[in-house]
Design a protein around this nucleic acid. Structure first.
Lengths: 194, 194, 194, 194
DNA sequence: TATGAATGAGGTTTCATTCAT
DNA sequence: CATGAATGAAACCTCATTCAT
């Protein structure tokens, strides 16, 4: 029963807090242990090594984030509504879940030098884009959308969302949601203009 | 030009190469010294400490990048051409200067925990956006552009450019320039549609 | 036979295998437990501590080896035959039981720093030499052998056997049995020459 | 001049003393540093890692030992004298240089699990045996010695010498030199008997 | 100016042993 | 009897920085 999972979750959560506080670079196993209120040894009982912990933190963050998006979006009836809501979700990340963004930026910085991290990041974004692509595809099949216009849309949406989040994180002198809304507007005009 | 500047440049360039190869996190002063072909001591002679070197690397990267953008854009005659060219420049970074992108991502990951780095990053983007804003402002004053539409345009352009670059860095399975071009098209329709 | 003896034997045998695989130095209690298919706790239930296990492994190895020698040698009728057979046994160890040799070498390396290990080793060799000395003594009393010549014979035989085994273990590029046979021949000429 | 060599020698010698005192297994880099009167860091300045230090200790021990044998033996005029002296040297190791023996036993215990150590050990013994073989070969060519009798002689001599040394180390209750002398006598009778 | 030897704190990881269950 | 979670000391190694030369 779950003791193992509980401890792992405890360590993962502590690690996430440490990353937020000190950054991925400065993170030590000792810090994690202290934050989790356990001995350093126990971390190696539940995880292969430090890198393993970091990977689990990323996976867990993505799992939660993915679920959050899906939960909110999937129940909507029409592709257009899904598309809109999906974009809203992205643009609201800075306000709704800035910590997720902070963690994400840490891992993006490390990704080029850690193939596993990069792999997880890539999978995450591809996964999410796949949802967008599905809605758009449905629109194309309905005849509401132009095949050519939607081809690169998901990557445009996610590139913009990621860039906006990072910009905001570094310099939160603007209202990310407002700008996101305008971007959504721009895209919608482009997609749905007669 | 004095020995001092030569040595500094030598160390800065070596550090940049080290960052590209191993990442900001894994960077040691010994690595830098070896890459630069000097002793570790010399580094402390010409720089206050390791962090100082890193800051200089970032500043130097930004200086060059800034110059590159300006050189290409500023000579154009009309605001609209400047705007277009500026966006092209941004979207061509992945292909023209992926190393700049790689270095940038390293610093973005570190920024939340190093106020000086963050400050330099923020200044860099604000600077560049200011150019965009100037062109757009000129367009508004000419009557070509709608004041409301251009309000957040520079941040949108840079957010998108940054996000696109990072996405491409992690997963270069798409043609960043092509997508950039489509984005430019979307924006232009939005700005200049009757 | 009780559970206790079964478990102890199980752990001892697992430890022996671990020593063969990783060496005495690199041996951890966790390794032993895993190899034996038990928990670490159980080891401390049946043995005082790690050192205790190691001592039992050595004793058990020696017990078996001793029995092996005795079984084969003691049934022979004459001292000379016993002597010959005993030496053959020694020289055949590399081929017949290289694992015993491997284990032995591990303990020899540790002996100078573990009085108990050394004590067991010393006792083992003294025991075996005592058998040899008995045959030789019988020969002296029969008048077949010269008292002076046999005085140091047992130690010579065992020194040579041990050295030969170790040499072979490190560099098995020769036929230990053949060389052993020649050594036996040399000694016999010495002992029995008119 | 030679600061580097001096320091290395200092560390190697300290390591040798530590091995004698605590054994190869129990040896820590901290111990070595303390014994050498330096910081731990410096050891990694002059050596790649702990294993590197250990290999150098072995090589250095062998270098000295080899030189010692050669110096004493090579000046003698006849092969027979060289052979005799060489064997005397071997049998006097316990008394003349027990520390060498102690160190050797440590490395023999570790050899099966460290290919580099084994390689050095094997080379050492092959080297020395080659000298013996040369004298013996000279004897064969002179007609003094029987080709068949000398074939395995060097390995017999070194096996015996090694075994005798180890036996003596574990249980110095006998006079190794005296027994060595008797062994030499046995061999000489065998080789030179009419 | 320039070197690189030297330090020692701090990083990750392992491990013998104990103990609640 | 049996488990394996938990501890914390100690192992190896790295590194930013200083300083004698």
């Amino acid at each position: 029963m779950g003791t193992k999972e509980v401890r792992q979750e405890q360590v993962i959560e502590a690690t996430r807090r440490c990353i937020l506080e000190k950054g991925l670079c400065q993170l030590s196993v000792k810090d994690i242990a202290a934050e989790a209120g356990v001995s350093t040894g126990i971390i190696y009982h539940y995880f292969k090594n430090k890198e393993d912990v970091l990977l689990q933190v990323l996976k867990e963050s993505f799992r939660k984030s993915h679920m959050q998006v899906m939960k909110t979006v999937e129940s909507l009836p029409t592709p257009r509504e899904k598309l809109e809501k999906h974009m809203d979700q992205i643009h609201r990340v800075p306000e709704d879940n800035p910590d997720f963004l902070r963690v994400l930026v840490n891992y993006i910085g490390a990704a080029p030098y850690h193939p596993e991290i990069r792999h997880i990041l890539v999978k995450f974004f591809r996964n999410l884009r796949a949802y967008l692509d599905r809605y758009l595809q449905a629109g194309v099949e309905e005849g509401t959308l132009d095949r050519k216009k939607v081809e690169f849309l998901s990557i445009m949406v996610y590139s913009f969302g990621l860039g906006l989040g990072i910009m905001w994180l570094m310099d939160p002198s603007f209202d990310a949601e407002e700008i996101g809304a305008q971007f959504k507007d721009v895209l919608q005009r482009y997609l749905f203009e007669e």
